[in-house]
C-alpha cells in the first residue's frame, strides 16, 4: 500500500511539470503585459524599463520559467501586481468565503441528489421517474448566469427574501449572505448529479446478483438498501471525492455577482488585469488539488472495492 502511494505520488511529478509548462507558455508568452497597467496613464519609457527590471520581466524566458518552478515548490508566489498584497495571504483570506459558499452547497446537493437518485432508480421507468429526470434536466438547461440574474432580481430584490449581495466575516452572519448563491448552485448541480447517480445505481440494478437476490425472495426495498446501495457507492463516492478539492475554488460567477470575496472572484479579477502571479498561483493550486484528488480517489477505490488490484 505504501509503495503504491509513493509510486502514485511520483507519477504526479511529470503531470505537475506539464501543467507548469503549459501555464507558463500560455500566460507568459502570450498573455497581456501588465507593465502599462501598473504604471498608469503617465508612463514614460524610463519608468517602463525600471519596472521591468524591478519585476524581472527583462530576464530571458527560461530563467523566468525556472523561477516559476521554484515558486511552485516553495508555494510562494510573491505579490499581486495589481493589489500588491501577498498572494499567500490573499489565498488564505479567500478560502474562507469560497468554502462558506461551496461546502454547504456541496453537502446539500449531494444529500438531495443521492436521495432523489435512489428514489427514481427504485421507481425506474415509471412516470415519476421520467418527470423527475425531466425536472433535473430542466434545472441543467439554464445557464448559471440566467439563474443569477433572475434570482437576484426576483428573490432578493422584489421579494426581499435574501440579501442582494455582500459578505460578513463573522459567524453566523456570513451564512445569510450565501443562502441565495447556495440555492442557485444547488439548482444547477442537482440535476447533473441525480442523473449520474441514477445511472450508477441502475448499472448495479441490472447486475446478475440483484436478480439472484430477488430470486432468493428478498423484497425490493431490501434488495435496494442492502445490495444496490452499497455497491453503487463506489462510483458515487469516487465522483464525490473528485469534486471536493475543486470546491475550494468557488464559482467565479456566483462570487462576482454576490460580492463574495472568495478565490473564484480573485481569479477572475486576475485574468482581467493580466495579474500573472495570481493566475499562476490559482491555476497551480487547482492543478495540484486535482492531481491529489485523483490520487485520493485511486486509493479510495482500492479500499472500497476489493476487486480492484493494486497494479
Amino acid at each position: 500500500m505504501f509503495e503504491y502511494i509513493v509510486r502514485k505520488l511520483l507519477q504526479t511529478i511529470p503531470t505537475i511539470f506539464g501543467v507548469a509548462l503549459i501555464i507558463f507558455i500560455l500566460f507568459n508568452l502570450v498573455g497581456g503585459d501588465p507593465t502599462y497597467q501598473m504604471l498608469g496613464k503617465h508612463a514614460n519609457q524610463k519608468q517602463i524599463q525600471e519596472l521591468r527590471h524591478e519585476y524581472g520581466f527583462d530576464q530571458p524566458k527560461y530563467i523566468q520559467f525556472v523561477q516559476y518552478l521554484k515558486q511552485i515548490v516553495t508555494f510562494d508566489f510573491g505579490r499581486s501586481y495589481a493589489t500588491k498584497q501577498p498572494i499567500g495571504k490573499m489565498i488564505l483570506r479567500g478560502i474562507g468565503p469560497s468554502l462558506t459558499l461551496a461546502i454547504p452547497a456541496f453537502l446539500l446537493t449531494t444529500f438531495l441528489s443521492v436521495i432523489i437518485g435512489l428514489f427514481v432508480s427504485y421507481f425506474r421507468g415509471t412516470f415519476t421517474d421520467k418527470s423527475v429526470v425531466v425536472a433535473c434536466v430542466f434545472g441543467m438547461s439554464l445557464p448559471m448566469l440566467a439563474y443569477i440574474l433572475f434570482g437576484q432580481y426576483f428573490l432578493a430584490y422584489k421579494l426581499g427574501w435574501f440579501p442582494i449581495s455582500g459578505f460578513e466575516v463573522t459567524f453566523p452572519e456570513r451564512f445569510e449572505y450565501v443562502m441565495l448563491p447556495i440555492l442557485i448552485w444547488v439548482s444547477v448541480s442537482v440535476g447533473y448529479d441525480v442523473r449520474f447517480y441514477r445511472t450508477a445505481i441502475l448499472e448495479e440494478v441490472g447486475q446478475d446478483y440483484v436478480r439472484t437476490a430477488r430470486a432468493k425472495g428478498l423484497s425490493e426495498p431490501r434488495v435496494f438498501m442492502k445490495h444496490v446501495l452499497k455497491n453503487s457507492m463506489v462510483p458515487i463516492l469516487t465522483n464525490l471525492v473528485i469534486e471536493i478539492p475543486m470546491l475550494i475554488l468557488g464559482s467565479f460567477l456566483l462570487e462576482s455577482f454576490f460580492g463574495i470575496p472568495g478565490l473564484g472572484s480573485i481569479t477572475i479579477d486576475a485574468i482581467h488585469n493580466s495579474d500573472f502571479p495570481i493566475i499562476k498561483a490559482m491555476t497551480t493550486l487547482q492543478a495540484l488539488l486535482f492531481i491529489f484528488g485523483n490520487l485520493a480517489t485511486d486509493i479510495l477505490y482500492t479500499v472500497v472495492d476489493p476487486r480492484v488490484r493494486l497494479k
Binding site: 440574474l149 437576484q152 432580481y153 432578493a156 430584490y157 442582494i164 449581495s165 455582500g166 462576482s256 455577482f257 454576490f258 460580492g259 470575496p261 472572484s265 479579477d269
Partner: peptide
C-alpha cells in the same frame, strides 16, 4: 465593493 452593476443598483 460591488463589481457588477446589477447588485449595486438593486441594493
Amino acid at each position: 465593493v460591488f463589481e457588477e452593476s446589477q447588485p449595486m443598483w438593486l441594493t
